[in-house]
């Protein structure tokens, strides 16, 4: 295969990954790693390095749209970034020293977990209680505008638990080269009980910075290869752009199921190949 053919095939695959990732809300990174390692036999360390760059690209691209809606809780995001960035560095160093077959197995597990989570029924929490403890000290309670422009106040619960969960999300992001958006939303929805409109955008706000913290480690360790970053970054960006354009119109339920099945198959292959030391 010539470099041009290889680059074009990876480009088209990444475009599809970015498109589906943005339609289903699972992100592009989660398909890039199995695509590169299982389909093209790329070493998982190159796959991780390429994926983290794609994650930064898509989250920054999406954030531009989210930020306009004005529902990101910037204070909450900034505070939790302390946990996710420290976690990301720990994760990136674990990745440097952990055996690759073990990383493949953990990746497969997280893949299944994320697919299951994407079906979880969204419970829309709006608690409005006076702030106490950490939420008060850190001024985390806030409000967001509803469709009619009315301000809806909400409070943030269990700050310590959310912070700890974010640290774990950061470690997984750094270890596996993914955004771990699913875990971040889980921490904010289920532990901190904030409205999911706010948690989705705030999670995206944190993904780019978290990924950047581990990307600087990966870059200097030779995980980030230009020949792979070229087709993957551009492909994922274009795919995600079109995905977000039709997101409001398309009926995504059927697509979600197909995508979840594909992801589960990929996950099983990752775990199998990891267990048999082929990755």
């Amino acid at each position: 295969m010539t470099i041009l053919t290889f680059t074009l095939i990876i480009f088209l695959g990444s475009m599809l990954a970015g498109f589906l990732g943005s339609l289903t809300g699972l992100g592009g990174g989660i398909v890039i790693i199995p695509m590169l390692s299982l389909l093209f036999g790329v070493d998982i360390r190159y796959a991780i390095g390429t994926s983290i760059v794609a994650v930064i690209a898509t989250s920054s691209g999406a954030a531009a749209a989210y930020v306009k809606e004005g529902i990101t809780n910037i204070r909450l995001g900034m505070f939790l970034e302390i946990a996710t960035t420290i976690g990301a560095i720990v994760g990136a160093f674990l990745a440097v020293y952990a055996p690759t077959h073990l990383i493949a197995i953990i990746f497969g597990g997280i893949l299944i977990f994320s697919a299951v989570l994407s079906f979880q029924k969204k419970v829309h929490f709006i608690k409005n209680e006076p702030a106490t403890g950490w939420a008060k000290a850190l001024k985390l309670n806030s409000n967001y505008p509803d469709i009619n422009g009315n301000k809806i106040d909400y409070s943030v619960k269990n700050v310590g638990g959310g912070f700890a969960m974010m640290w774990v999300a950061g470690i997984l992001s750094g270890l596996l080269g993914i955004g771990s958006g699913a875990l971040k939303v889980l921490a904010m929805d289920n532990i901190m009980k904030i409205p999911f409109k706010v948690s989705t955008t705030t999670s995206n706000f944190m993904i780019g910075v978290t990924a950047a913290a581990s990307a600087v480690v990966y870059f200097q360790r030779g995980y980030i290869d230009p020949g792979l970053c070229l087709p993957v970054t551009l492909g994922v960006l274009i795919g995600a752009f079109f995905g977000s354009r039709i997101l409001t119109r398309a009926q995504t339920k059927g697509l979600r199921i197909v995508f979840a099945i594909v992801i589960t198959i990929l996950a099983i292959e990752m775990i199998y190949n990891g267990a048999t030391h082929r990755l």
Partner: peptide, 17 residues
């Protein structure tokens, strides 16, 4: 040059902070 683009990309969310 590709790697320079990647460095810019990594710097983007950091610039936001």
């Amino acid at each position: 040059i590709i790697q320079l683009g990647v460095i810019f990309l990594i710097a983007t969310p950091v610039a936001r902070v």
